[in-house]
Design a protein around this nucleic acid. Structure first.
Lengths: 245, 245
DNA sequence: TGCAATTGTCTATATCAATAGACATTTCGA
DNA sequence: TCGAAATGTCTATTGATATAGACAATTGCA
């Protein structure tokens, strides 16, 4: 791992961005924990085989994100470094899952819509396409940093008023409880990764080219009846999923 | 979903690459299944709000990857479209997991090294740092398309000769069996996503900017003793993970 | 056949990305 | 206090990226 960190040219991805991505990831992996600083620009330029100005562009981007802060004469200090671990189990819950990894958890209800189920949503919820479903758009934060954006669908008939309940409790679990569903379990999770689109970039405070970890999840009640289908989009450099079998 | 597909400028990621990524993903999601073709260049240019030449650069990149093929006078045909589903369960096995989703599975042993365990590897395998471990680098293909590249570590003492056994059987399960381990289970999986580095780009036949789904997994024998720690890197546009709870 | 739709090719121009070198400014320790 | 080490700023040059417009070549259909 001590080897040369390589970047590629003429690929449509600017060198400074490739380098920024590598450094951001290295910080997340604790590579520079000993000093609390990124190596000097001249050293990085040598490691990546590029000009010092190119490294400076990368560091400027990271500074813009609030990840590092350059101090003239000293070096480039690491400001923030976080990778939350998000467990996926039969009892997956967002807030409880993050648990003590963050001091403050927040959940914002961005939008609530009642609509007809698409083919995909109907299949996951065990409904007929066109059946009424409630869609919630939510944004979840840990210590004031956006962590994930989620789109959730619920059968409209059974969970009327879930948007209001969610807004009040900022928790799916508590919203379910208020509507008479005491417990539920995670039945299936599909994980993919993709580039973030413009809307997600803005809400998650990411820069273009950023990666999303995408979890498509279906929850059921204790009788196995689907109660929620959701597509959650996580900032890949801030979280990892853990699956304990 | 019918809305404007937006791309961003001055982000270090060329517009043509952002557009190529979007189209590749749309193809993977079956967006153009009805026609089997990508919309005309002029239409895409309008949708993305860019010049037709920029769209052409994106399509040229996808053609280079073998995903589409442009035919003058007709349009741009979709050549290949695949997203394998890879289940993660207590009994996760690569070959069996992909199962009937591909006609032909192959597994190549790229390298075998006996080395001292790093802190991370030692922790996962329950060894002392510096203990002897065998590291295997493997490349797995489905229907001649590279799917994932994996680095695996095994306790050297218990599994001496596993490289040879793997090379013979092209299967971890069968290699374990030959060495006297009849059964094993997946204990823990951590999933993250990141940009591919140069070596992985080449082996997985990806283009820079491509995303990897990364699974760090630990397998144990039936007594709960760690037998394997692996870091598998999957081409994110070719696979998804499914977790059934 | 002829035309509409579509991809292919060429020229020109402006902006972004990357390199190169020089020198200023700040910090910290010998 | 001086100097080494580090970041900050400036100029200049080259190649990649993106736009713009015009027209050629191919396909398929009326």
């Amino acid at each position: 791992m001590a080897g040369l960190k390589q970047v590629q040219r003429q690929t449509g991805v600017a060198l400074w961005r490739q380098i920024a991505d590598r450094i951001r990831e290295a910080i997340g992996n604790g590579a520079y924990d000993e000093t609390g600083m990124v190596p000097p620009e001249t050293v990085l330029a040598l490691q990546f085989g590029v000009n010092r100005h190119t490294v400076r562009s990368a560091l400027a981007a990271l500074a813009q994100e609030g990840i590092v802060r350059a101090v003239q004469g000293r070096g480039t200090l690491i400001e923030r470094k976080e990778r939350l671990s998000f467990p996926i189990t039969r009892r997956t819950r967002f807030t409880a899952g993050i648990g003590d990894q963050a001091r403050e958890m927040r959940s914002l209800l961005l939008d609530e819509v009642t609509e007809e189920a698409s083919v995909e949503v109907a299949r996951w919820l065990g409904l007929k396409p066109g059946a009424q479903v409630i869609r919630l758009e939510t944004l979840r934060e840990a210590d004031r940093r956006p962590v994930s954006k989620a789109t959730s669908w619920f059968p409209a008939e059974r969970f009327a008023g879930i948007g209001e309940a969610y807004g009040k409790h900022q928790s799916i679990t508590k919203a379910f409880a208020e509507l008479g569903l005491a417990d539920y379990v995670r039945a299936t999770t599909e994980v993919t990764a993709a580039h973030a689109d413009t809307a997600d970039l803005a809400d998650l405070e990411l820069t273009p080219g950023a990666i999303l970890l995408i979890a498509k999840a279906m929850n059921t009640d204790l009788d196995g009846v689907p109660v929620q289908y959701s597509i959650s989009r996580f900032a890949a450099d801030r979280v990892q999923f853990t699956i304990e079998n």
